[in-house]
Computed example of a mutant assay.
Amino acid sequence: MTTKDLEGKGAVITGSSRGIGAATAALIAARGAGVVVNYRQKAPRAQKVVAGIEEAGGKAVAVGADLTEEGGAATLVNAAVEHFGSLDLLILNASGGMEAGRGEDYALTLNRDAQVNMVKAALEVMPAGSQIVFVTSHQAHFINQTATMDAYEPVARSKRAGEDALRDLIPVLDEKGILLTVVSGDMIEGTITATLLERAQPGAIDARREAAGKLYTVEEFAAEIAALVGRSDLEQGHTELVGGAEDFLRQHG
């Protein structure tokens, strides 16, 4: 039986209408939190995630917001407070940069600037004891030491810039008693990023699977993210490396 350790808590999970975000939302809701399921365009998909949570006895609401647009972050923060009474958990899962037609600065705008704006908006209401989880990839986390696939490099560099910008906020987070946790995973089977990368660079996912030994599924990675939520033994700014990091660490020295 799932423990209800998050009962009475409000959570925002960005980019949670599908994939890792949706799977994480279900796990967090199962522990009692009220979850804001965020989508950018696909409302029916987000509503389906909410329906699944509610059918399992959980609480959730679908909220449309583009984090790269002014007011997007505030919309999500306000939704958590309005529907669930507080915002105690922010999982920064939304990322991108390989999409066509979004402009050359889109990766940095989404993966760095929007993440910082989301955190700053959340800090206006988050109480002491809250947690922020930033979801990244090994390809991004280690990009300054280890080259990645050409098609993914702009995304990797922008996500590392986002991680660095959030770490720069740690003094503010310390003052407020809020924990930042970074969770880094390898390429994840079945995600949109993996699909786009394979399209841009055929064979890339097979090569990464061989190097890592195994690539996590969406559900497996979501479980790793959820397992970090509410941990009392984590240091500020802790980075959790999930699966397949050994070759990165070897190259990192």
Rank of each mutant, 00 (worst) to 15 (best):
N111D: 03
R112G: 04
Q115Y: 05
V116L: 14
V116W: 12
N117L: 11
N117V: 06
K120I: 06
A121E: 03
E124H: 10
E124G: 11
V125W: 04
P127E: 14
A128C: 02
G129Q: 08
S130P: 08
S130Y: 06
Q131V: 15
F134D: 06
V135G: 02
S137N: 09
Q139C: 13
Q139P: 13
H141L: 13
H141A: 05
Q145P: 14
T146R: 00
T146D: 11
A147D: 12
M149W: 08
Y152S: 12
Y152H: 09
E153G: 07
E153F: 02
P154F: 00
V155C: 08
A156R: 10
R157C: 01
K159L: 04
K159S: 02
A161K: 11
A161I: 13
G162N: 02
G162E: 09
E163C: 12
R167Q: 01
D168T: 06
G177N: 10
T181I: 05
V183L: 04
S184P: 03
S184I: 06
M187P: 03
M187F: 01
M187K: 09
I188D: 00
I188V: 11
G190H: 08
A194C: 14
T195V: 14
L196Y: 04
E198I: 13
A200L: 06
P202F: 06
R209G: 00
A211G: 14
L215G: 03
Y216Q: 15
T217P: 03
